[in-house]
Design a protein around this nucleic acid. Structure first.
Lengths: 215, 215
DNA sequence: GTAGCTTTGTGACCGCTTTCACAAGCGTCC
DNA sequence: GGACGCTTGTGAAAGCGGTCACAAAGCTAC
């Protein structure tokens, strides 16, 4: 299979969400044009994204909402349940545990870890917070994805242990760049970077608008 | 000024964080090579990123950690304090409010809104949760950035009101694509997309490794 | 069956980001 | 003060993702 752009995968995920919304009340079929409108992209982009994986539409008609959604689920690997562990029982961790949408989408958080003795043993929803020393044992028991929600200083150490335990997918909330070996997927959610990009946009746009006003 | 790639801005933010770490205990100077190593990119990339904004290094020597950090703060607009409001007093909102790093970096959350009458009037840290009806009035009072942390269905409606109130920067946590007029910056943090990309990587890599084993 | 309208799938093109490669500049050592 | 080593800054080349445009294909009407 050819190389798929990372951005394409992200868009497929978005398309799927839009299709799921439409499935309940919308028409049974839609065009690339309509899907693009909802997704904030272009019809050509939608068709190109899908064409990497096969042909899903009918010319002159568009795509079946149900069939395309099903195909995207297969492509994204969402037909099975993924076993997830959370490392770091702080504020972010708590928000994630409470976010029941994950379970509904097939991502089940099965364990929570923290190194703070005061937190170990606490019950979070239906999970007990476990000590960091148990990490390897639990991860080796078939965990697919680890969410890292610890302070930046601790993140690389945690991810090293996670990778050594055979986990090959990490979702990182620590505001730092993680180094992992080939074959391990890392996705980062970095709110600090996003906020600072907004800051940049604000000072940059302000300057642009000022010069526009002068001309 | 020329067009700056979005990805460059994100990396500058990362460089700044790395420099701040080094400032406390590291050497007073470093090369693009060293910075690139820590940032997970290449030396050429670092130099190109910086070259968009001027020249900050000394040939043969590298960059002064303190001076470069200061320059990046200016570029990113982090020398001033930004006034932030949070819309949506759910789990994510609570985590964000508790995340005191934001304040330290110059992003001060000054108001929290929710539409749930049961939440209005609650005290969160030192803030009182306000009703959605007060939104416009407060935003017009000099709020620079709004964080949207409401359910996906409500997000577009909120952002429309936010934009109408003159705010030009939005950080979106709702798992949906927001439509905003020209001149408004939106950054999205979409955990669902990230998780599904990991799911894709897992099924995709598994296939890749299988075929590698066969060959 | 065929004319006409619609919409897909895709190769070619385009523009932007990254990488490459090297001349220019700075400090050091003798 | 001159030679040497190191590192920057930057034009040029390469690579990649996005857009365009159109032939192919399906559906409807008559």
């Amino acid at each position: 299979m050819k190389k798929i752009p990372e951005s394409t995968v992200g868009r497929l995920s978005l398309y799927l969400r839009l299709l799921d919304e439409l499935a309940v009340d919308g028409p049974p079929t839609l065009s690339s044009e309509e899907l693009a409108g909802r997704a904030g992209t272009t019809a050509a982009q939608v068709r190109k994204d899908l064409s990497f994986f096969g042909t899903f539409g009918k010319r002159g008609l568009g795509y079946s909402v149900a069939q395309l959604a099903s195909a995207l689920r297969t492509i994204l690997g969402l037909e099975r349940r993924w076993r997830v562990a959370l490392v770091g029982a702080g504020q972010i961790g708590k928000a994630l545990i409470g976010y029941r949408d994950f379970e509904r989408q097939g991502f089940g958080i099965e364990a929570v870890f923290d190194s703070d003795p005061a937190k170990i043993g606490q019950r979070w929803q239906d999970l007990e917070v476990r000590g960091a020393c148990e990490l390897e044992a639990v991860l080796r028991d078939g965990i697919d994805i680890v969410i890292v929600a610890v302070p930046a200083e601790a993140a690389q150490g945690v991810v090293d242990r996670v990778v050594a335990s055979g986990v090959r997918a990490v979702l990182n909330f620590a505001p730092t760049k993680l180094r992992v070996p080939e074959g391990v997927a890392v996705k980062s959610v970095n709110m600090a970077v996003e906020l600072e990009s907004l800051s940049y946009a604000l000072v940059h746009d302000a300057a642009a608008q000022r010069s526009r006003r002068l001309s």
